[in-house]
Computed example of a mutant assay.
Amino acid sequence: MDTKRHNQRSEQVHLEKVTFLMTLVLVSLLFLLLLLPFWGAIFWACIIGLIFSPMYQRLLRMGKPKPNLAALGTLLICFVIGIIPSLFVIISFFREGASLYNRLKSGEFDIADRIDKVQTAFPSIKNFFDRFDLDINSIQAQLSDFALTSSGYIAQNALALGQGTLQFFVALGLMLYMAFFMLRDGDKLVATLVRALPLGNEREYLLFNKFAEVVRATVKGNLLVAAVQGILGGFIFWVLDIHGALLWGVVMTLLSLIPVIGAGLIWGPVAIYLFAIGELSHGVILVAYGAGVIGLADNILRPLLVGRDTKLPDYIVLLSTLGGFSLFGMNGFVLGPLVAALFIAFWEIFIREFNTSKSGNASME
């Protein structure tokens, strides 16, 4: 009788645990669904918390201010050095994009005419396309449509940016509000997660440290490299009197988030066009500057700032960044390498902890 009662009690406890865990998963999914509309603000609040955490700790140690004041001071520094310049660049980018759209629509800037000039100057290009059965006229039309569509998209979003100013600043305020708590309570949140997750404290701290390390390296490294390449590219376009230098500088900044090939997707075709219209000196300057200065900045800075700190091979950084862009959009330049780094970290833990007996048996034999 006691055994039967004990078994019944064990079954009841098991049922209660299963029911509780299922309810826990359901409630957690519903909570995440509630937060989904604010995903971008929460994501970048976490990024700000991770990147500026050392500065927050330094402010705490300097004059021993209260945590609230230290977090507010850190956010103020972040706002001055990061957000205000970004807002200025974004507004200028949309203004330049709207100007390009008007020039394309009026025919002042004719993509087809420029492609014809390149084709006339380099007949081998047509032969190359013919060899692969590609219709250069179709490609020309597609490029013209793409230029008009993309610039029109920028122009429409410039209008939407003006109309949605209140919504934009609400999202910005929410991000800064969340970042305040990430800075002030970040250590407590990590400790709570370590207690909640059933992975083992040592593994969890290792994974959290890897997470923070990769996020800091990818965000600071990639953004710094992209900003440097965009500034260098916009500068040479301005020196060579190429219209829309600021616009193309921002585009090169965005494309530079893609390792190796980013900025070259802009300055390369422009250099070919300069050669096609007979501006040989400008073309040579742009090629030399693009390969020797813009490209060198990528080859030197990215391995130092990204590859070294994330401890990921260059080809993994490239593939994970491209995959991140395809899956997560602009946030992919952080999430892609982060997923790759966590993948490697999990397998390193598995090899170290679960394959020791095999390696031990092999050595005994």
Rank of each mutant, 00 (worst) to 15 (best):
N102R: 15
H14Q: 08
L257A: 07
E108S: 14
Y101I: 04
I344S: 01
N7Q: 05
N68Y: 10
V214P: 04
V228P: 02
F181I: 04
G40R: 12
I261E: 05
F237E: 00
A212P: 07
A71Q: 00
L100W: 11
I77H: 00
T192D: 10
L318H: 02
A112G: 06
Q156G: 05
P303H: 09
I83H: 03
L33W: 11
A276R: 07
S359R: 15
D309R: 11
W39P: 09
L36Y: 07
L319K: 01
H282G: 09
N209T: 05
F31G: 11
L280S: 13
A158M: 04
G360E: 15
V118N: 06
S256W: 04
T19E: 14
L174I: 06
A212V: 09
L232R: 05
H6F: 12
A196P: 01
G162S: 10
R352V: 04
F38A: 10
M330G: 13
L33N: 14
F235P: 00
L296T: 15
M1W: 06
T19A: 09
K66Q: 09
I51Y: 07
F211L: 07
R61K: 15
S326H: 09
L30S: 11
G278H: 11
V219R: 00
A196N: 04
V225D: 01
L197G: 05
M252A: 06
G49S: 12
